[in-house]
Design a protein around this nucleic acid. Structure first.
Lengths: 334, 334
DNA sequence: ATCGGTATCGATAACGTTTTCGAATCGGCG
DNA sequence: CGCCGATTCGAAAACGTTATCGATACCGAT
């Protein structure tokens, strides 16, 4: 019910009978202000409920003690990373700001660069960027990338062992007797997607099973974009008996398409995913998948970022292990 | 690999051979600049990759086209709301910034007020606040509350029908033959917690079953805070045969405590939750609960906020229905 | 030529904070 | 009593942007 204007530093200064400069010193704990004055100003600050304006603060000092995490959207993958990062930030002295491009559908490339330019140097002290396609770093500003785009980059990075995970998934399908295995690959600009496809091909070659190129199609890592390729694959006269989807969302999409076409998973078609997002345990049938420790990846990324800002010398590339999680979406080939 | 300073408006102005004022007009699409100039400036903006500084922009104009959503932490409840809000924001012309108090444990009361003071008027044009305990609105700044604190408030609000949901839950347990029903209530400062307890008492009274006051304990809506009360309840000589937990996290905590004490859910103890967060379907046994449409609540809150800023006349209190979701954590009383 | 009216543009003052640096005060000591 | 160093404070400039408003250029009409 209190209907008041934002209280600014000059208000505090006036009621405390000092100058804004002095208030600023008190707020930031700078040296050179008398004991009595400090206490009086702090009292006024408390009484008036003063809070520094983030915008003005950062505009002047280029330091806000706020870190950002940039996501294209709040899909399950990013949300899990966010949870991990959020837990890690507690007690670090920083606060966390999650920024979504909001682009949703169109997802204009380069949103990370634009958002970063908008926030860096004027709002946040550093950022972790999830699945960035464009990496470009201004000096004196730290970013770490999670699951970055392809191509050479010396950005500090956190990811999981995508290649090994893909080998795990493929070998599992092979061990069930499948040989006509399809692969719905991910966003071609993502390192992880390329490594998963490479792992798939490697495992197939290792087993001496040739890859039918018609069974490998890009699915874009999203439910909507994967549906088309999945339908094409399943529409083939000699359709695959198993599909290794590039991520869980593609796998879920594939299962939906299969159902629509009258196919039963896992009886008519085995499906394995990648990520182990919470949703994968909820779908029917529960999805067999490759787990990457998403929350831990988020936590590691945040800790790495904090260390970088603090100037700590440490390894700037973290790779976490993957693991096979067996549920009910795969069955031996008859 | 490009290693460059942040490019500012004056840089654009210099290379385009105009003044910063003109650049500003071009950026904001103001009237009064020649066609040719507009194009030239836009070209330079694109070439240099200029992006306005959020801080400076908002400091001066008090308008950023950015909305905030304030969460105490990224637990499941808030995360679902966030997803809903995030989907709704696409295409609204705004961008969404999620802010977590980061307080995690201690969760100092009034974090919403402090964060809001920090962000409002200098960073965001409006905010939706999840489970706020302190409501205080500055003029010319819009906020909408989701699941707000108790006490009178004329804040625009989105919530679900907590009372009816609690009646649903209680009646379900009663219909299974339970009469010794315990209730682990929620954060006592939250409207939703009070309404759920009231619904519980109302349904019990309606059925003519007296409430044993020793079986009603506050659990704080969190896994850690609910464990103690749950243990006390289950340690009673005449322990309850069923527990209506104030939310899913309390219910999950209760099930864990029960397991530790050698009790089997649902055979020795029926447990029902509230919220239907995704986790409730993952636990073992899957949790029977009351669903509130969390994502939709987030979406409605965001739409309401946008409308308020735009000055649209509309209903400022939205209440969504709840629903019983039967899974496997309840069983008829023998 | 002169004039009035439109376009187009740029100086400049804010916005709320931090930081530098000089001014003022005070106590102690010669 | 005069001087000096230490302490405490405030004036003012900067940060990058937007908004106001006056200056200039140009046009056609008298």
């Amino acid at each position: 019910m209190v209907f008041q204007q934002r209280v600014k530093m000059s208000d505090v200064a006036r009621t405390a009978g000092v100058s804004v400069a002095t208030v600023s010193k008190v707020v930031n704990g700078r040296y050179g202000v008398a004991r009595a004055t400090v206490e009086r100003v702090q009292q006024v600050i408390h009484d008036l409920g003063y809070e520094a304006s983030l915008g003005a603060q950062s505009l002047r000092s280029h330091r806000t003690n706020v870190l950002g995490i940039l996501l294209a959207e709040f899909e399950p993958f990013s949300t899990e990373l966010l949870k991990g990062a959020s837990q890690e930030v507690a007690g670090s002295g920083y606060q966390l700001l999650a920024y979504s491009s909001g682009d949703g559908e169109g997802a204009a490339v380069g949103w990370e660069r634009r958002s970063l330019a908008r926030l860096s140097g004027t709002l946040i002290d550093g950022a972790v960027i999830v699945t960035p396609t464009v990496v470009e770093t201004e000096n004196n500003f730290h970013v770490v990338a999670v699951d970055p785009h392809t191509g050479p980059s010396h950005l500090p990075t956190v990811d999981s062992d995508n290649f090994a995970g893909a080998v795990l998934a493929t070998n599992y399908l092979l061990s069930l007797g499948h040989t006509r295995i399809g692969h719905i690959s991910g966003r071609t600009d993502l390192m992880s997607a390329q490594l998963r496809e490479a792992g798939f091909r490697s495992a197939m070659a290792e087993a001496g099973v040739p890859v039918d190129e018609r069974l490998v199609r890009p699915g874009g890592f999203r439910i909507e974009t994967a549906a088309g390729p999945a339908a094409e694959l399943l529409g083939l006269a000699d359709r695959p008996t198993a599909i290794f989807a590039g991520n869980d969302l593609s796998a879920i999409s594939t299962m939906a398409v299969a159902r629509d076409m009258g196919l039963c998973v896992p009886d008519d078609l085995s499906v394995i995913g990648f990520d182990n997002v919470p949703e994968s345990a909820l779908v029917n049938p529960p999805l067999t998948t490759i787990m990457q420790p998403l929350q831990r990846m988020g936590a590691e990324a945040l800790r790495l970022l904090v260390d970088l800002i603090a100037g700590v010398e440490r390894d700037t590339h973290i790779r976490l292990p993957t693991e096979l999680v067996i549920r009910s979406s795969c069955r031996p080939h008859r």
